[in-house]
Amino acid sequence: MLYLTATLQSLFSTLRQSLKKPTTVEYPKVVRPRAPRLRASFALTKDAAGDENCIGCKKCEKVCPSEVIALTTVKKPSPITGKSRGYASDFTLNLQGCIICELCVQVCPTDAIVMVQDQEKPGFSREDLVLTMDKLYDNGEKKLRLSWANASVLAEHQNPERKHA
């Protein structure tokens, strides 16, 4: 069998498809809209008074399945209120090992760490992909509007007592 009709059938269907509007878009001229809940990178937040939210409780470090968070807790007086409280120093998040599971956001008791929608730009060295504390607070200043949830919002979603219309 020469499969002549079969070949013509395939060619015809290809022709039909080629005359349709293409599905591909010219990225980066056209950027695909991202879902509001997209989670890509991280930010550490400060509260309304400007004090760091992170108290260095290490819950995120313990819960991370890939063990990419490392931080040390220090106790020092707050620059805003003057009272001594816990802070994190040397907070590093290794984005290379992160599996974007959002568990660190879930367990944070002070809503300090959130996930933002904007992805980190690729870098030339491994150090570029390790988020240091400065970078994280920087993300918090600049990209916080790109995050949709912190621990409180997630807890509200998952509240077993939640009642809504």
């Binding site: 509001p36 809940r37 599971c101 979603h157």
Partner: peptide, 24 residues
Amino acid sequence: FEELTGCRFHYNTHCIGGNRHDIP
């Protein structure tokens, strides 16, 4: 799935007792 959970793949949207993300 991205609208619902935030990830296109490997969502981690289930937890013991239910789901972590609710339908938007």
